[in-house]
Structure formats: structure tokens, C-alpha cells
Amino acid sequence: MLENFIDFLSNGENLLFIIFSMLVIVGAVFLINLQRVVHMVIALATTFISLAGLYVMLDAEFLAFVQVLIYAGAMTILMIFGIMMTKHEKQNEEPKRALHNVLLLVGSIGFFIILYLAIQDAVFPIQEFTSNEENTKMIGIELFTWHVIPFELVSVLLTVAFIGAIIVAKREED
């Protein structure tokens, strides 16, 4: 048992996976349990960066880069701005929704069990994607040859969303 465990950990990839996934989960748990909102955002940033590490392990270097750039960078900053623009007391007063919380806990655990069983039940092929050295280049070719229309649509969507966000958040002067 212990030998198996050591054996498992002696593989570098496995060790890295364990470390990153630990960081992901710990970050997520801290997000839920920390008291101050700013701390929560930092915990979340940890999770995002660890996820980027996992992406690298999955041969998705470009996505890891994007992850760090957008999530850990832009979005976390956006959230901090959001926090700063609204007032936040410490969440020390316990919410009075006992039934809600119990049901939520049961539901979440149940949902996890279903997912876990489904994962254990599924049969996956052993084949592996041949890792490409030029991941970013391949994505670029793929994106601008086969997926150019979705790409343009998404960019329009993003523009619309940001303009909309500005209009919504703008102070209604008159």
C-alpha cells in the first residue's frame, strides 16, 4: 500500500499532478471558508494559477498562458474592483438558513457521488494525443482556418458584453 503510494509519487508527473490538484482544492476550499472578501479573491487566484499548471501538464501551454492572463490577471482584478465598489462587512453573522444549508450540503455531496460514479463507470481508451511542440501555432492555424466564424462571433459578443457592462454600471446621471 505504502509502496504503491511511493511508487506512484516517484513518477514526476504524478507528483506534479498531486501538488497542483492539492493547490486547486485548497484554494477553492479557502475561497469558501475565508472571512474577508479580499482573501477569498487571493485564494481564487491560487486556484487559477494552479489550474494553469495543470493545463501545462495537459500539453495546453497556450491555454495555460491565457488562463493566467485572463483569470488570474484580468478577472481577479475585476473582482477586486467589484469588491471595492460595493461595501462589505465581514461575513461573521451566521446566516439563519439552516434547512437550506443542510439540503445544500446533502445535494452537493449527492451530486458529487453521481459524478464520481459516472467517471468510475466510464471506459476511456488508453490512446494518447501526440504532444505537439508548437501548441500555440497549431491553435492559431486551427482557429483562423476552421473556426474563424465562431471566433469573430465571440469577439463581437465580447465587445457587446463589455459595452453593455459599461452602460449598466454607468451612473444614471439624468
Partner: peptide, 20 residues
């Protein structure tokens, strides 16, 4: 990648609504 883009849009709009 598309997913991340949508998520960014969602976060931006979400925060905007929150502020409003």
C-alpha cells in the same frame, strides 16, 4: 478558449449588474 472568453464577458456583465 471560447469558454474563457464567454466567462470573461459573463464576469464583466455580472460585476456591472452588481454595481448597478
Amino acid at each position: 478558449l471560447f469558454n474563457i472568453t464567454i466567462a470573461a464577458a459573463e464576469a464583466a456583465v455580472g460585476i456591472a449588474i452588481l454595481i448597478a
